[in-house]
Amino acid sequence: MSEKIDIYLNGDRLQVAVGIDLQQLQQQFAADQQVAIALNTEIMPRRCWPERVLQARDQVLIFNLVAGG
């Protein structure tokens, strides 16, 4: 069984595999949606997602990009 770490995704505690990056997290939890991701209160450019490996206790916000008003 692979090792796990605890992170917070949209406020909820969650266990994910050690070594998972933002791109993999997005594919796992928001694959069909156009989203932006904030990691520890910084919004990460999309091209950085594969490089950012998650650490224990990281706080991640995944939110849909919308255009309405």
């Binding site: 904030a38 990460m44 950085c48």
Partner: peptide, 19 residues
């Protein structure tokens, strides 16, 4: 950016990093 989280009824402020 201030992001609305409906379930928590709160906004989270995040810095927008330049690409």
């Amino acid at each position: 950016v201030q992001i609305y989280q409906h379930h928590q009824q709160q906004f989270s402020q995040c810095q927008l990093l330049a690409d």
